[in-house]
Design a protein around this nucleic acid. Structure first.
Lengths: 220, 220
DNA sequence: ACTACGGTTGAATCCTGAA
DNA sequence: GTTCAGGATTCAACCGTAG
């Protein structure tokens, strides 16, 4: 397990071709997002409000993914056309999964439906099977907190996706580690993990969370 | 209520500017679709496996929609980037709704998640409020049959969307009427309806369905 | 001073699930 | 059972500055 505080393009430069078994990550969505309503105020997510970085990023991802590998890339419906179009240049977009949350979000209260899901673009590099039952492309998972990051992902959702697509000791990567949920999920499912988070505050909080989790596990 | 057997571009040519209160339609998705597994074999949906017609179509839609109007355009995730990008040139894409079905479809049985939803691109022309409660963007509705069309929509789903976005006697349009579900839903909710279906077999079956429905209503 | 414009601020909803 | 909190937003109101 290795989590660093740096830009993910720098981290990936050090990774050899065809190394990663699974990409499971939640990139910044290219939205100028900051909730003024939260009780816990987080630093605004660094975001130039566009996705200019995306083409170079996905190209570098392609280089380091193994020949038979899965990718799960979180995405809002607002920018799904940008994500999907660019990803399809390199990978086979197999599905767009719907992560259904337990509650709805804010937004236009009278002229719109309330947001209740995020999209997850599911791709394969080459051909690879999924483990276990044939589950549906709508996945219900409770949002479990935002004490480490405003868009913190539920650990059990990440564990589920890891177990659908990898074997024990496989290498899972998350380029936008955020709260560290993916790292913890990889640890819990006995997979190896590499990831980074560019924001120092989020990185520090994630490392504290991860270290606490590892310490608790060792008590048993 | 008026349903014709013709190409929808011909039908729309006869409609004056800013006439339609609600567009609720399920266009051909630009996929070469034919299930070989169905018990009921339908004629293959006419489709040149691309969406070349879409830019002209949406431009014509823009012309005939009222200044404050909603649009619901069904869409598979496979081509959502094409639909969304083109629609955004003319309308405000407010949301992508998820119609969650009660059961899953076919497709890749071992390397993919099972399809359980369709997307509905929800747009507004100008500013318009929704009626009733603030519902979420995941809408559960049972698929109720495919005896009239392979992608037949549940009448209650169409009724729900019509009632969210229109008043009694408003004019609802469905350019791709298919099984006639939208027409029946408009009738049931006391809205006016205009639509067409290019395929003679689907058109005949839909008209039979609609006429039977009207006849049954008149018994009471 | 008056308007036009752009950026910032804060208020609002209802459903779900945890307590 | 009942309370309670929380939410990858949008909109309108309100500034400040420029023309």
């Amino acid at each position: 397990m290795k989590v660093t505080n740096e830009d993910n393009m720098l981290m990936m430069q050090r990774i050899e071709n065809e190394t990663i078994d699974l990409l499971l990550t939640d990139p910044p969505f290219g939205m100028d997002f900051q909730s003024n309503y939260r009780k816990i105020k987080h630093e605004k997510i660094e975001n130039d409000n566009n996705l200019n970085w995306f083409p170079d990023w996905i190209k570098e991802i392609k280089r380091i993914m193994k020949q038979d590998a899965h990718l799960y890339i979180f995405c809002s419906w607002h920018k799904v056309e940008v994500f999907k179009t660019e990803i399809e240049k390199y990978f086979n977009v197999k599905n767009i999964l719907i992560w259904e949350k337990n509650n709805t979000g804010m937004g236009d209260l009278t002229g719109d439906f309330a947001p209740k899901y995020e999209m997850i673009i599911f791709c394969s590099n080459g051909v690879k099977k999924l483990k276990g039952n044939r589950d549906s492309n709508i996945i219900k998972a409770k949002k479990t907190g935002n004490e480490y990051h405003p868009t913190q992902k539920p650990v059990n959702l990440m564990e589920y996706l890891i177990e659908k697509s990898t074997n024990i000791n496989d290498l899972v990567m998350d380029c936008f580690s955020g709260s560290g949920s993916t790292a913890i999920a990889a640890y819990n499912t006995n997979r190896d993990f590499i990831g980074c988070e560019i924001n120092k505050q989020f990185y520090d909080k994630a490392m504290e969370r991860i270290n606490n989790h590892l310490a608790q596990q060792k008590l048993f």
